[in-house]
């Protein structure tokens, strides 16, 4: 949206504000109710972590924000996704294209799947760069090529000229991940979504990739949504954390506060699963697994696994209770303490 002033948008308002977002998938035998009214917001410059078990809907939510879920089978029956005050779900194609890439950009989970196998790296990076230049400022072929080289140099890839001519299968996993990061950042996005960056790589490479990513977003002051399983990374790199369980945000708080005073039983369980160097033996984990989305549990979706379950949890979905200092928790245990 560069250059076009958006009316009614003040810097104090959230940059991205997701309200009551629902995403369903039509499958044989019914509908998977994956996202069940998610609320999520972030301000400009913020680094937000999103944590939760595999299959809890983190990636689905991010794909919904960029409107890249395959529809059908996906369907968005309700919700708003406000980017700078404008609803992405209602945008026309040309407005949407201005948001994708330049507004919000995304690093996908699996770099091997996220690169088109039959196009060279150059063809892919250059296509992204061509569309990320503001309309009316058409760049020449040579300029695009130079920017592609810069994009690869920024992610510390050697010999970019040769890389641009290579195909994804000729690259190692770490190189592919760097290419994906370089591509996502080449659009100079306001928000970068990083979906479990480096998960598919070995630990040393993963560490390098994360350091690099952190350095780049700090240099450019990019707002970030970081999806990860690794709580240590969240603790080190984010300002605020959202905890997601089975398609719901169950808790959100400033990072330090969430780690020192986790409130939701699920968050407490999640944090206690992290092994500590100080000892304490084998971690306990949370018994049970993510529920079936075809027939999700009534009331609070976590109640079948919760050790502190009450009668009301079976029947009523808990709203988000405000606990002060930007801490919110969706759990009836805190109904009376809420401010």
């Amino acid at each position: 949206m560069a250059g076009s002033p958006v009316t009614g948008f003040s810097p104090a308002a959230p940059l991205l504000d997701v309200k009551n977002l629902q995403v369903h998938f039509a499958v044989y035998g019914g509908r998977l109710r994956v996202l069940d009214g998610v609320n999520f917001s972030m301000r400009s410059g913020e680094r937000v972590g999103l944590v939760g078990e595999t299959g809890c809907g983190k990636t689905t939510m991010m794909k919904a924000i960029l409107r890249v879920l395959p529809t059908p089978p996906a369907k968005i029956p309700a919700g708003e996704i406000l980017f700078k005050g404008r609803d992405i779900l209602k945008m026309r194609d040309h407005e949407l294209r201005a948001v994708r890439g330049r507004g919000i950009s995304m690093i996908f989970q699996d770099p091997t799947a996220a690169l088109n196998p039959v196009f060279s790296i150059g063809e892919q990076v250059e296509a992204v760069i061509r569309y990320s230049t503001s309309p009316g400022k058409a760049s020449s072929r040579e300029e695009t090529h130079q920017r592609a080289i810069t994009a690869l140099q920024e992610v510390a890839l050697a010999d970019p000229e040769r890389l641009l001519r290579s195909y994804p299968i000729q690259l190692s996993g770490g190189m592919r991940q760097r290419v994906c990061i370089g591509m996502a950042l080449s659009t100079r996005p306001e928000i970068l979504i990083a979906d479990e960056p480096g998960t598919s790589l070995d630990v040393t490479i993963q560490d390098q990739v994360l350091r690099l990513l952190r350095k780049l977003v700090e240099e450019k002051d990019t707002s970030v949504i970081l999806i990860t399983h690794t709580l240590g990374i969240v603790r080190e790199t984010t300002d605020r954390v959202y905890v997601m369980y089975a398609g719901n945000i169950v808790e959100s708080a400033p990072t330090a506060r969430l780690f020192s005073q986790p409130l939701h039983p699920y968050t407490q369980g999640l944090i206690s699963t992290v092994p500590r160097l100080t000892g304490g033996g084998i971690v306990s984990g949370i018994p049970g697994r993510i529920p079936d989305y075809l027939n999700p549990p009534s009331g609070c979706r976590f109640h079948p696994r919760c050790s502190q379950m009450m009668e009301i949890c079976r029947t009523t979905k808990p709203p988000a209770f405000k606990m002060g200092d930007g801490h919110e928790v969706a759990c009836f245990l805190y109904k009376d303490e809420a401010k």
Binding site: L66, V68, D110, A114
Partner: peptide, 13 residues
Amino acid sequence: KDYIAAERALGIS
């Protein structure tokens, strides 16, 4: 496929 989602997400028409 993810690469199609990625290409769309990065703003390609």
